[in-house]
Every structure is written in structure tokens, then in C-alpha cells.
Design a binder for these strands. Structure first.
Length: 295
DNA sequence: CCCTCGACATTGTCAACCTT
DNA sequence: AAGGTTGACAATGTCGAGGG
């Protein structure tokens, strides 16, 4: 069944005349006759009573008209939905990001995004760096925000800010009394670090190795918030991104490690070959870059 | 006012060929 | 070998003229 035949049928039914319908549709009248004949042949029943001067719908015609109006409305809605999807005005967007970035910028970005794109269903996942990269590669999220992914995994990294590591100590820790803290001072400490293999963690390990120092990791913890609480409770000391220390627990202090001068980029990660929703991804990325620039 | 017919235009299908 | 392009042919759509 041809959609155009249904469209023609609907216009004839509304106009009550083949001639007037042909004028509306910009077809020759004979075209309408043929289309209706084909429709009637296909359905095996007459749709118009043509015996009188003015045509009238048969009972079958009335029934088909109800269904036709429903079908054409559905088609119109489908076209509108697909058009919105293509323009990035509807659909869904899945974003994965690491915890510190989410804490700093996410609320503002979500607010702005919701205001500008109310018809896009936004899903935010707070992930570790490695999970962010994995889920992007597996097409489980559309956009990631974290440290750079490994090379040659089909991901593109766009830096938006640079992060430096700092040391989080309990307030009463002996290192707190020192004028300057060095990496060598941490060798005897119970060091709390994020899980491996995260780019941040790898860079810290390399800094220790470069100075010929042993890196004695006390505990690996997947959540920076739990690490901070562990420091507060005196479990150990932690090296973490400065961005993660804007809100620290009571009785903890942030100190700079003199010979730990790392500059780790944080940024937007997308697939080299975007699958869907590239416009929504662009919109969210743009808002996030703006939020980072304003901070 | 609607239907039929013949001519022409457009669209779809398929096989052969080309490119990667 | 898979996928894309091209050309020939068939099917379908459209039109105008003319008839019932």
C-alpha cells in the first residue's frame, strides 16, 4: 500500500470531489482515479459511491478514512521526531565522567543543557577513568570527560583544563609541620591512590620511578571521596588531583609536593567515528567547555 | 463529473563492471 | 571478496484528450 494513495484518498474524502482534490494535490484528475482504483483493487472493496453526481464515502471508505488519518498523523510525527533527532533537538545523550569534574561543573552544565535541550534525555554516569574509556569504546556512552585515553583505541581527546596533583594529609600529621614536602618523604607513608591503570596514577608512579624511589601503595580505592574520608580518619595520606580538593573533610589539609610537578590534561573524549547524536554531543561539549572557562 | 486510453517521464531492478 | 557505479530494461506514475 502506497502512502501517497492514502494521502490522495484522504484529500478526496475531505473535498468530496476528485476534481477539487486534484486541484489541491496538483495532480491530473485521472491520476486520482487511477490511485483510488488501485487502492480499491488492493483492498478488494469500493471506497466511494460514484453513482450520484456528488461522490460519497462507502462504509468501507469511512472506516479507511479513520485509519488513514491515524496513519498519516503517525507518519508526520515520525518525520518530526527524526528531523529533531538529526538536528540534535531530541533523543538521548549518555555522558560518563570522573567524580571531581562532575562535582565542580556538572550541576551548572546540566541546568544549562536542560534549559536549551529539554527534549533530549540526558544520562550521566560517574565513572573511573578506565571505565570512561571502556564504555566509550563499547558505545555504552556517547561522551566521556576524564584524563586522556590510551593511543590507538579509536578515541579522540580534546583538553579543556590542566590538573596538578596535591597531597591530602590529616591535620595533625607530622609532615604538616615541614616547610616543604618531597616525594621521598612519602615512601614511608601509607599512600592511598586511585585504582590502576589510570593515567593520573601512572604519571605518579613514573614520578617516583624517575627519582629511583619505591612507591609503597597502602590501599587502592576507586572513589576519591572515600580516599578523602580515609585520610580524615588517619588511614594514610593521599595524592589526588587538585580539582578534587576544593571540598575536603574537616581535619584534613592540602599541601604541595615540591618535586611532583605533573600537569595532567583533563578533557572531552569522543569516538573517532561518532555513531549517533553527534549534535547533542557537540552541544553538551560546548556547554562543558564554557563552564570550565568561566570557573 | 468521472473513467479510459495512449504517450511520456520517473523510478526501481538487475547484471556487468570497477574500485578498494 | 565486498561494496559501489553504471547502463539497459521493466514497472509505475503522470498527463492531456476524449467519451459516457
Amino acid at each position: 500500500m502506497d502512502l501517497r494513495h492514502l494521502q490522495t484518498f484522504k484529500v478526496i474524502a475531505e473535498a468530496g470531489s476528485f476534481v477539487q482534490a486534484a486541484e489541491r494535490l496538483q495532480y491530473a484528475q485521472s491520476t486520482l482515479t487511477l490511485q483510488i482504483q488501485q487502492l480499491e483493487a488492493e483492498l478488494g472493496i469500493e471506497l466511494f459511491d460514484r453513482r450520484r453526481r456528488k461522490i460519497q464515502l462507502t462504509a468501507a471508505g469511512h472506516t479507511l478514512l479513520i485509519h488513514t488519518q491515524h496513519i498519516l498523523n503517525q507518519v508526520e510525527q515520525m518525520q518530526q521526531d527524526l528531523s529533531d533527532l538529526a538536528a540534535g533537538e531530541s533523543g538521548s545523550l549518555r555522558v560518563g565522567m570522573i567524580e571531581p569534574i562532575a562535582r565542580l561543573y556538572l550541576i551548572d552544565v546540566m541546568h544549562a543543557f536542560r534549559e536549551r535541550y529539554p527534549r533530549i534525555r540526558l544520562t550521566i554516569e560517574i565513572l573511573s577513568t578506565i571505565r570512561t574509556h571502556e564504555q566509550l569504546t563499547a558505545n555504552q556512552i556517547d561522551l566521556g570527560i576524564s584524563t586522556p585515553p590510551p593511543a590507538n583505541v579509536g578515541l579522540i581527546f580534546e583538553p579543556i583544563l590542566t590538573e596538578t596533583p596535591v597531597l591530602l594529609l590529616p591535620k595533625n600529621h607530622s609532615l604538616q609541620q615541614q616547610d616543604e614536602i618531597l616525594l621521598s618523604d612519602l615512601c614511608a607513608e601509607c599512600l592511598l591512590l586511585t585504582e590502576s591503570p589510570c593515567a593520573y596514577r601512572t604519571a605518579i608512579e613514573q614520578a617516583f620511578m624517575a627519582r629511583g624511589l619505591p612507591l609503597a601503595i597502602g590501599i587502592e580505592i576507586g572513589s576519591l571521596e572515600i580516599i578523602k574520608q580515609a585520610v580524615q580518619q588517619g588511614v594514610g595520606v593521599a595524592i589526588m588531583p587538585k580539582i578534587a580538593t576544593y571540598h575536603i573533610p574537616d581535619d584534613t589539609v592540602v599541601r604541595h609536593v615540591k618535586d611532583l610537578n605533573l600537569h595532567m590534561p583533563l578533557g572531552l573524549i569522543t569516538r573517532e567515528v561518532p555513531l549517533t547524536q553527534s549534535k547533542a554531543v557537540q552541544a553538551f561539549s560546548s556547554l562543558f567547555k564554557q563552564a570550565a572557562a568561566d570557573a
